[in-house]
Simulated assay, not measured.
Amino acid sequence: MNYFKNLGLGNLLMLVLCALIILVAEYLFLTGDTEHGLFVGLWAPTLLGVMIYLKLVENGSK
């Protein structure tokens, strides 16, 4: 539980959002809408990249 406290509420919400995006992309892909599934599936790595960038900027200013 201490890990989630250190992670922070904002980062935890972003990770939950990424998991939800992956589930929606899988649903779209498996129901036959492959192009939309791939498009939506690329949002999760983009959000994770933004999270990493913001964490690097925050740590660089200290």
Score class of each variant (00 low, 15 high):
20 L>Q: 08
29 F>H: 14
37 G>F: 07
56 L>E: 01
60 G>T: 06
59 N>I: 10
22 I>W: 00
50 V>Q: 00
28 L>E: 07
11 N>I: 03
25 A>G: 03
21 I>N: 13
53 Y>E: 01
29 F>S: 15
40 V>M: 07
11 N>C: 12
52 I>N: 04
54 L>Y: 12
56 L>A: 11
21 I>K: 06
1 M>F: 06
15 L>T: 08
36 H>F: 12
48 L>G: 05
38 L>M: 11
17 L>E: 11
45 P>A: 03
28 L>T: 06
54 L>F: 11
33 D>P: 00
2 N>M: 13
58 E>Q: 08
3 Y>S: 11
58 E>Y: 05
5 K>Q: 14
57 V>K: 14
54 L>W: 11
58 E>V: 05
7 L>W: 01
31 T>W: 02
29 F>G: 12
60 G>D: 05
40 V>C: 07
48 L>M: 06
55 K>E: 05
40 V>W: 09
38 L>F: 13
9 L>D: 08
57 V>D: 10
52 I>W: 03
34 T>Y: 03
16 V>F: 10
41 G>I: 00
3 Y>T: 11
13 L>Y: 04
52 I>M: 05
49 G>P: 13
58 E>N: 05
18 C>L: 02
43 W>V: 15
46 T>H: 03
16 V>T: 14
49 G>N: 09
17 L>F: 14
22 I>Q: 02
20 L>T: 07
31 T>P: 05
40 V>P: 05
19 A>Q: 06
21 I>G: 01
24 V>I: 12
30 L>Q: 11
13 L>W: 02
1 M>H: 13
32 G>E: 00
32 G>Y: 04
18 C>R: 09
14 M>V: 14
39 F>H: 10
8 G>W: 06
54 L>C: 08
42 L>D: 07
5 K>F: 14
60 G>W: 10
